[in-house]
Design a protein around this nucleic acid. Structure first.
Length: 214
DNA sequence: AACTCGGGGCA
DNA sequence: TGCCCAGAGTT
């Protein structure tokens, strides 16, 4: 068993400002922003939502927009056809069945169109203080490279990380691993030589610092 | 497990 | 020009 907590300590020193970088003021805004963040950088999501949420920021407002209108607003986030339809459908469900409130359980969230396990856990951990671990591609890749988990699916990674990390650190660990995945432990051409945790990393020890992905 | 959605930033 | 981005849904 690797000393995950020591690794997290180093990452905390490396990324003192690690946090959710999506801009939002309500649970519903975070839900929409996270749906938009699929295959899209947070910078671009924030660029879209800044003006978008000034005009619409409730389920009722989005439910009353046409898919074409939503598409036009979110086009620069990419994948806009599927995202706009899912946003409209989710908004209608929240309006009709949830009194315009975002549900606070994984089971309910994951049923919403456009909301998968990762998005649901982001909402739970960031706005409802539910103990959850969101596993995206960065968390999955970095965790497996270091060797703190060795799993085939994000869901298994989620459970292994929650088992290995104290509950109090789950939320922050998620952001630390994302920051590390974006800055240094990149999918392509990771910068292992400047990595602060390379001596604790299986990927580096095995000499895989040559641009290959795991 | 493999495939599709997708505009825009960057090399 | 080609590659890639805080995933989800379908086959």
């Amino acid at each position: 068993m690797k000393e995950i907590n020591k690794i997290l300590d180093v990452l905390e020193d490396t990324y003192p400002d690690a946090k959710c970088e999506l801009n939002y003021t309500t649970p519903f805004e975070l839900l929409i922003a996270t749906i938009l963040s699929a295959q899209c950088t947070d910078v671009r999501v924030n660029k879209v939502t800044k003006s978008l949420f000034e005009k619409y920021n409730t389920p009722k407002a989005f439910a009353n927009l046409s898919i074409e209108e939503i598409s036009e607003e979110i086009k620069s986030c990419g994948l806009y056809k599927s995202k706009s339809q899912k946003i409209k459908e989710t908004s209608q469900i929240l309006l009709n069945d949830y009194n315009e409130e975002v549900p606070n359980t994984l089971e309910e969230l994951i049923k919403l169109p456009g909301v998968g396990r990762k998005t649901a856990n982001v909402v739970l951990s960031n706005v409802f203080n539910v103990d959850a671990m969101a596993v995206d591609t960065h968390v999955f890749r970095v965790s497996n490279r270091i060797g703190i988990v060795n799993t085939k699916t994000p869901e298994k990674t989620e459970f292994e990380l929650m088992d290995a990390i104290p509950k109090i650190r789950w939320s922050h660990a998620h952001h630390l691993l994302i920051f590390h995945g974006r800055r240094i432990c990149k999918a392509r051409k990771p910068e292992c030589e400047i990595c602060p945790i390379k001596n604790d990393c299986n990927y580096y020890k095995e000499g895989n610092d040559n641009g290959e992905t795991t």
